[in-house]
């Protein structure tokens, strides 16, 4: 009998997951200790001890950094995990290696939702702080449905080029609306611009809690649909033939992805390319089986974004580069490389 844990066809590999988790934790610790302001490690350690035991009244630099840096790094890790997970799921579902929130225009749609909510002060009764998040999620889902239906009408195979083209056009459309709103909402321009740059600099523990809930529920849903994603990645018709409830599973995955992208964008703005590049790197390491690819993308996404944030914090010390700038810079180069390679294979 083939062992349950090591069977590549089954795909589950707990040792691999553990290894990824350890690497992610090491990077997490590194990102807590390093930053634009140099603080001795001993001071940070004692601050962490104080912080955990609830003694947060200490006013030394280390404690101040802990209050700012710790939630920021946690938010960066959770956002990276969420975006990479979404990218991996979309690339499997659509059988398209270039699918991701930013290339499909879903992130721009989510930004538009958040900006409309801020600029027009849309508040949902009983959800004072949550209306921006909710608008992001709704707009992310609506954009995804709109883009996919437009693409499907043009080309029912949902070919890479069609989706990317419509995604680009939709992104431009969303940005034109955002610019229009900026013109009319001058006193809120600064907070609106934040969404288009992508940054987690001011994020707090409340944001982290929101992201955690979204990641546990929606990420969990995606992880539970690894087999179905494998079937979709092979072909939708084949998925139907082996017994996948195609319509239901597709809807579940699209909703989960929209919620994750919506929540991430409402907290950190548009952070481009993390969801595109990370699943590719993960696929190179663990293969295309989603039972391994999804967890690998989750950890790799968290690690990648934490490192990108760290680079943004230290490269122009004491100035900071927004995380979106770092990911867009590295991501666009990787995008060209991947696009070139897929075309060459064809």
């Amino acid at each position: 009998m083939i062992s349950y844990m090591g069977n590549r066809a089954r795909g589950y590999n707990w040792i691999e997951y553990l290894l990824f988790a350890i690497i992610t934790m090491v990077i997490f610790v590194l990102c807590i200790f390093a930053g634009s302001v140099r603080v001795p490690a001993g001071e940070i350690l004692s601050s962490i001890r104080d912080f955990i035991s609830g003694q947060t009244e200490n006013t030394n630099t280390a404690m101040q950094i802990m209050k700012i840096r710790l939630p920021r790094v946690i938010n960066v890790a959770l956002t990276g995990a969420a975006l990479a997970l979404c990218g991996a799921a979309m690339q499997g579902l659509l059988r398209n290696p270039l699918a991701d929130g930013s290339t499909l225009g879903v992130s721009s749609g989510a930004s538009l939702g958040a900006i409309i909510s801020i600029a027009f002060g849309i508040a949902i009764p009983g959800l004072s702080g949550g209306s921006t998040v909710l608008m992001s999620i709704l707009f992310a889902f609506a954009s995804l449905v709109l883009i996919l239906s437009l693409a499907y009408r043009l080309d029912y195979t949902l070919a890479t080029n069609t989706i990317i083209l419509i995604g680009v056009v939709f992104t431009m459309f969303a940005h034109s609306l955002i610019s229009m709103i900026v013109v009319f909402a001058d006193e809120k321009v600064k907070s609106i611009m934040f969404w288009t740059m992508g940054s987690l600099a001011g994020s707090n523990f409340k944001n982290a809690a929101t992201l955690t809930v979204a990641l546990v529920i929606c990420g969990g849903l995606l992880l539970l649909h690894a087999d179905e994603l494998n079937a979709f990645a092979i072909g939708e018709e084949n998925a139907r033939h082996i017994g996948v409830n195609v319509r239901r599973v597709k809807l579940i995955i699209l909703i989960a992805v929209s919620v994750l992208i919506g929540v991430s964008v409402s907290i950190g703005g548009t952070i481009g390319f993390a969801g595109l590049v990370i699943p590719h790197i993960a696929r190179m390491i663990v293969g295309p089986n989603h039972r391994r690819l999804l967890p690998a993308s989750l950890f790799a996404g968290a690690s990648f974004l934490m490192l990108a944030d760290l680079i943004g914090r230290i490269i122009l010390r004491p100035l900071e580069l927004p995380i979106g700038v770092v990911t867009s810079f590295t991501g666009s180069i990787a995008f060209v490389y991947i696009f070139y390679n897929t075309r060459r294979v064809k």
């Binding site: 590549r8 066809a9 089954r10 795909g11 059988r95 398209n96 290696p97 087999d227 494998n230 079937a231 990645a233 092979i234 072909g235 084949n238 082996i242 696929r283 293969g287 295309p288 089986n289």
Partner: peptide, 13 residues
């Protein structure tokens, strides 16, 4: 197929 699944992965589906 666009992704490098193994023969066994396809069969086991």
């Amino acid at each position: 197929i666009g992704y490098a699944f193994t023969v066994e992965e396809i069969v086991s589906l």
